[in-house]
Amino acid sequence: LNQFLARRLIERSRVAETLGEWRGAEAIDHEALEQVLLRVSEMVCELPQLREMDINPIIVDAHGAVAVDARVVIDNAPAGTHDYSHLAILPYPARYQQRWPLRGGGEYTIRPIRPDDAQMLQELVQNLSPESRYFRFVSSLKELPPAMLSRLTLIDYDREMALVAVHRQPDPDRPGEDHEIERVVGVSRYVTNPDKTSCEFSLVVADDFNGKGLGSRLMLSIMEEARDKGLTEIEGLVLANNPGMLKLMKSLGFAIKRFADDPDFMLVTHTL
């Protein structure tokens, strides 16, 4: 689970309407309930010997959540669990996190995407210009549908990777205070092709961060990660009327040619 999915689960439950202000009672602490679901999900990941869990009841109010009673069934952990072999999706690859200076001052962090980045990714897409959204998604969508947002943030790190550029900046809702918030200002990703030797990439950078070196760094970082996974070629489709992306690809040494199946696209490739 991620926070976005946990919130959706709560919203779809039969008790959802009673979790706000209800018959004179205050609204519950929604974040506390979300954290219960997230921690249970984390236990499933970290404890392969866990077989069943029943927490009943959980009392939630405006001050938090308390598990009144619980039943847990465990079994012997299978061999080789140190590598998360009981999971369908590998754990978070923190080793790919790096800090980089931002052209014009400041710095940003490039790291693998996490499930709880869903809201920041949605905000990135919502704040893109219509042209930038079309260049990235070849669609007039204004925001990512829930299923797509989940798919882009809850990834299988073994066969794909997404790197986000995160910038810390003052909180616009608390002017004058020494308080910062994180903002995703760019994303590069690849998905391994069926041949298991090449991959297809995508890239998007926030409009107000264009020209600051993020696109180049995100591409170089995702290429390095793909090389580390043993892939030998990276490729992508770029709209022929997207001169900014084509210029970036040329500067990074990509070969550029017409895409035979659709004249609206250019095929860009680079040997890793």
Rank of each mutant, 00 (worst) to 15 (best):
G105P: 03
L141I: 06
V138H: 14
G105N: 08
R136Q: 07
L121R: 01
L141Y: 13
D83A: 15
S140I: 00
P78S: 15
Y96G: 08
G80S: 14
S85M: 08
P130C: 09
I89L: 12
I89W: 11
E107G: 06
H86T: 00
D83P: 03
G106R: 14
E107Y: 11
A162L: 00
P91C: 04
E160Q: 15
F137E: 12
N127P: 02
I155C: 07
Q97Y: 07
P175F: 15
E160G: 03
Q98P: 01
L90F: 05
G106F: 11
S150C: 01
Y84S: 06
P145Y: 07
W100G: 08
T192V: 05
F135L: 12
V185C: 14
V164T: 07
D178M: 10
L90D: 04
I155P: 02
I155R: 12
L128C: 11
A147E: 07
P93C: 09
Q119G: 00
T153P: 15
A165D: 04
V125A: 07
G104A: 06
V184I: 14
W100M: 07
V191T: 08
A94W: 05
A79I: 00
H82L: 06
P175T: 14
R159H: 15
Y134E: 13
R114K: 07
P93I: 02
S140G: 10
M148A: 12
R174A: 13
P93S: 11
A165E: 04
L163V: 02
L121T: 02
P194M: 13
